[in-house]
Design a protein around this nucleic acid. Structure first.
Lengths: 215, 215, 215, 215
DNA sequence: TATGAATGAGATTTCATTCAT
DNA sequence: AATGAATGAAATCTCATTCAT
């Protein structure tokens, strides 16, 4: 959880990174964690722009003053969360095994989609807030695009023997990523009335079919 | 373009509909149009939350006072645009012909996706802003969900002989809608580096394959 | 009804005065009357400050432009009404006969109070608005004080053989005027639940008793 | 002094009551007090409608932001004052001893009227603003009517052996209340040119006479 | 390390008045 | 004589950030 007091940020500072500007004692760690969690919750309920620092400190049951002890501003808190998410997504992307037109490949795909669903459940609010326009367009837009790109690259790299989409495998991978991300968002925002297994089965089926044709 | 001063809105008031709360003369019509267009532009560049009424009237080259003559507030302008979009999307959904595992079916699919891309190009900003949390959660969330739902229903109703996704065709349709919508958004926000034809071909291929298997 | 277009006003111009700046034809007279009536109504419902020109022209079913054809501004319309009221009140004050501790004196008092009640019923809104602070403190405050003063003077001048209030008859008269005015206002604003005759009888009784002791 | 940020108000919250939505430290209490006093002053000089929040914070030597920390808006501040006044008036009404046609009764009456005059001196601006139309008609109108009613009830309950006004003692009491309130207002707004003792003597005399006839 | 209070820049909104037809 | 549209100054209100304790 990247937290510093400095206004200008050490890009790439990362959660758990040892070189924080302040060494935090147990109490500080707890407060920091509370604020981050409150951030996830509030960004989730109200979105990035509507989230007020006031909301966050209320949820965290702390004060304005304390907030600014840990974060330079609202954007700083969001950045800390976003960097965490980027890490997690990267890890997830790396964990994808080879996808083959076999029952094993299909099982691996489903497992992976489930992992994503879990990640989305936890960090969905942050991911969604990401796509809100103008969270300082440049910085976050770039980060978001990077994450997506790496995700799509991982997917496309794992695919072997894909007969259907010959032309532009990277573009196709991105389309699938779009589907996976967005569909999970629909679920998160209750726009899909179906239980978890159905959702995962369907997502697996559609992805698999788009890669290898019908089962 | 639904415009009224009243706080409670005539639901269903629509662009060009004569039953506005004020009958507008030619000049008024022009101003209204200008404001709506400015809205699309500004929501597009800055996003819903960052857009200030000030930005909108500057683009429309008019005054604050005039803005509030036509809309109760920023949200009201957005609503007018959103209702327009909902209409257009509905029209588009209705225009989809039957999808068959034939070259004709594939061509129809591509045509339709192209239409969507055009619509998205025009109204993408509004569609995107839609997904920003908390533009009064209830009202717009519901409208957005409705639009998506009708879109998915149309898609699922047009599909004949789909071997791949037997289990839950409606859920599958929604997954495809998620992909189409989101991928267009990636394109809009320059997160896809590919030209239009490639994009459309790929989207067609993936959708087609997910329905009927590889070509 | 004093109406002129000039921004600076001929103090003392009076309704029906012949020297208006514009001679109005029948239609103009009608519009003027409509606006004045609308003024009474709106000042009555919303009070002077909350009354918007917009409300007045809506009630009068005319336009902003038209309003400013007849009055320089909101204050100008109010002044016209206030001057009318001042006239009527003066007339009423003059009409009071001698008050004696006899049945005739009592009857005269009641008659007069009834006249006042009728006047108040018509112009109460204006009278009330008068007492709102700051309708240009100086001008209207002065006018209001004048009216009250003349009213009290008339009352005190009509009193013969008043044993009770020897000390300061003018002050006492003013106190009675306060009661009469204010009690009518209570009635107007539904703060008194009693029918008209009771109200008049009571007011007569109290006034009479305060002047001559119990009947 | 009831202060809260919530739009819907804890009815009955009262000055100094501990159950505020925010517990205030010493400094906060001071600021609150300062704002309330500034409110009295500004409502007094300019009246409710003409009073701007800007005027109030200027008098209180604080900022806009601070104002809105303590009150939701101007009306909210007014409400807090009005509730205080209602309390004081109630207390005053309760303090009235029995009124008898004796020198003691007369003395008690005078004492009580003096108390009222003092209260009016302090809170007159608020009382006056009360009668300005449309400070949210319903809520304040009701409160005002309640206060008047209780006042009149107290008066009428204290009266023993009143020969003059047999018919409708409650209505008569209300008429006297009207006189007392309004006459004090005339004094406050300099429409009576008489010194304090004369004013009180006269008011006592008129009230006493209306109840028991001439002394 | 924590906090309640204060701040003020910037956004929204209202409405009396003017203008062009 | 009448009107719909436009204007902009002035008011309200919000909220990220700083400060004093």
């Amino acid at each position: 959880m990247a937290a510093r007091k400095t206004a200008t940020h050490t890009r790439g500072a990362r959660a758990g990174a040892p070189a924080e500007s302040r060494e935090l004692r147990a109490r500080g760690q707890r407060t920091l964690r509370t604020l981050l969690d409150a951030g996830i919750e509030v960004f989730g309920t109200r979105g990035y722009h509507s989230a007020r620092v006031d909301d966050i400190v209320k949820v965290a049951k702390t004060s304005h003053g304390t907030f600014y002890l840990y974060f330079a501003n609202k954007e700083d808190l969001f950045r800390a969360l976003a960097l965490d998410v980027a890490d997690e997504v990267q890890r997830l992307a790396d964990s994808l095994g080879p996808l083959t037109p076999t029952p094993e490949g299909r099982a691996e795909l489903r497992r992976w989609l489930e992992e994503f669903a879990l990640l989305h459940e936890r960090y969905g609010p942050v991911i969604r807030a990401w796509t809100e326009a103008e969270i300082d367009r440049s910085e976050f837009g770039r980060l978001g695009a990077d994450v997506l790109g790496r995700f799509a690259t991982a997917l496309s790299a794992r695919i072997r023997k894909v007969p259907s989409v010959k032309a532009a495998p990277d573009v196709a991978a991105l389309a699938l990523v779009a589907m996976i991300e967005r569909f999970n968002y629909y679920v998160l925002s209750n726009q899909v009335a179906a239980d978890r297994d159905i959702v995962l089965d369907t997502l697996t089926a559609v992805t698999y079919a788009s890669l290898f044709g019908a089962a």
